[in-house]
């Protein structure tokens, strides 16, 4: 009875096509799920790994980094170049130059993990766009932390006895304290 089987198969095949059509029709009646990116943006989760950035100590207003270079040594692609000086009045060295080659960074987090003084963290910045390669080859993280430190000291006129407002803490991911990376170069 191969003819009957053939007819039956044809019928079942046709039915499967109708089922498929019903599913796409049902999906078409459901709301849109895409995010209209430039107009809508997503909030990055707390553990999001953007490019690294230096952390400002909310107590003193200085970078926490002690220029121990452990991060530079731990980096698999050697994309961190940093230097530190011993400033007057300080007991320890502090960072004076911190450059990240973001073109080779693989965002593995080894540097953040190894840092003994919690001086590096991931930014929540994902709009990392530039017209200029140099923006990423030599990302000057020190200049950013310096600007943050200036903003901090502007917000905290001496004497710094009063407890610092939490808004100045760089741990807040939404604070637009750092220079936006997508500012057109030049």
């Amino acid at each position: 009875m191969s003819l009957i089987t053939a007819i039956r198969e044809t019928f079942l095949g046709f039915k499967s096509l109708l089922v498929g059509l019903r599913i796409t029709a049902r999906e078409a009646s459901r709301p849109i799920i895409t995010v209209q990116y430039p107009r809508e943006t997503l909030k990055m989760p707390a553990r999001f790994r953007g490019h690294i950035k230096l952390v400002l100590d909310p107590e003193t207003g200085k970078p926490r980094c002690t220029a121990c270079t452990l991060c530079a040594k731990a980096c698999p692609s050697g994309c961190i170049v940093l230097d530190g000086v011993k400033r007057e009045g300080d007991k320890k060295k502090s960072v004076s130059k911190y450059e990240l080659d973001f073109t080779t960074c693989s965002l593995c987090g080894s540097c953040v993990e190894i840092c003994p003084s919690d001086a590096i963290e991931f930014s929540k910045e994902y709009n990392v766009v530039s017209l200029n390669r140099d923006t990423f080859e030599n990302m000057d993280l020190y200049a950013k932390i310096e600007a943050e430190a200036r903003a901090w000291s502007a917000a905290h006129p001496a004497p710094p006895a009063a407890s610092p407002p939490p808004a100045a803490a760089p741990a807040n991911p939404t604070a637009p304290a750092s220079q936006p990376l997508n500012a057109p170069a030049g």
Binding site: P45, A46, R47, F48, R49, S106, L107, G109, F122
Partner: peptide, 15 residues
């Protein structure tokens, strides 16, 4: 990917 991103911060190359 959203779940894993919330967990480890990356969407594809988790490490």
């Amino acid at each position: 990917l959203d779940l894993l991103e919330g967990l480890c911060g990356a969407r594809l190359t988790y490490c």
